[in-house]
Amino acid sequence: MADTDTGVQPKRTGLTRTQKRRISRGAQYAVLVAAVIAFAVSADWGRLQNQFAQPAIAKQLFPELITVALKNTVLYTLSGFVVGLALGMVIALMRLSSVGPYRWLAGIYIEIFRGLPALLIFIFVGVGVPLAFPDVQYPGGTYGKVAVALGLVSAAYMAETIRAGIQAVPKGQTEAARSLGFSPARAMVSIVLPQAFRIILPPLTNELVLLFKDSSLVLFLGVTLEQRELSKFGNDLASQTANSTPILVAGLCYLLITIPLSLVVRRMEAKSLREIR
């Protein structure tokens, strides 16, 4: 009689959801800890330290590590970023133009420079252009060359980012500006671009992080001692000392810059999420 009772609960089979979740998570942690332990035990720390972390050699790197290498990395990156931003802006506006040939040219530029490895562009700028135009000098010598090469690479990415930002500004903003008597160009500069840049600040900062790493390609342009940046500097001193400590130290210098930048981006993204209008 009890079997036909409608109040009977379905019989519980196996584990509850909480139990299952606890077991699955426990298994994941166990695997993780096992992997770390296996790595730590099997690596030969003594030899690693000997090759990569010798305090005496690290000390020799100063002060040139900061006054030359880090300074140049920052200089190359920022100059490349400025060139890329200016060029990217022009290309983004061409991409959005009502004039067909402008749109096509911009599209071709973006596809080519996004599709080629940065290294090839560095070789093209450093070797190809001086061969083709022997009388043309890059302003600022190597610094100008690097700014152009990094600018050409980053402009393609930034153009797409800027275009997306401009298109994310509601059409009503342009209409309001135009109805007040703004010319199309002035509406773009005074009303649309300031809002677009607010939107694309996080992706632009990410682009800056990428450029920091790409600046290491300077090493293929042939630079003097004073023009060396972190990677070249680390690499050169590693050969001189027959030890890899300089490379580890140079790597830490990159992280010193890129990690805070990433944190800034994350904070900006969180902020813009909160400010959704």
Binding site: E175, A176, S179, L180, F182, I191, Q195, R198
Partner: peptide, 27 residues
């Protein structure tokens, strides 16, 4: 010709006063 839109279309990156002064100054 002044125009008022259904969706207001104020410039969100400018304060109320700047919304009024920027067009006067630029245009």
């Amino acid at each position: 010709i002044g125009m008022v839109f259904q969706q207001f279309n104020l410039f969100p990156h400018l304060s109320v006063t700047e919304n009024l002064t920027l067009p006067q100054r630029r245009v």
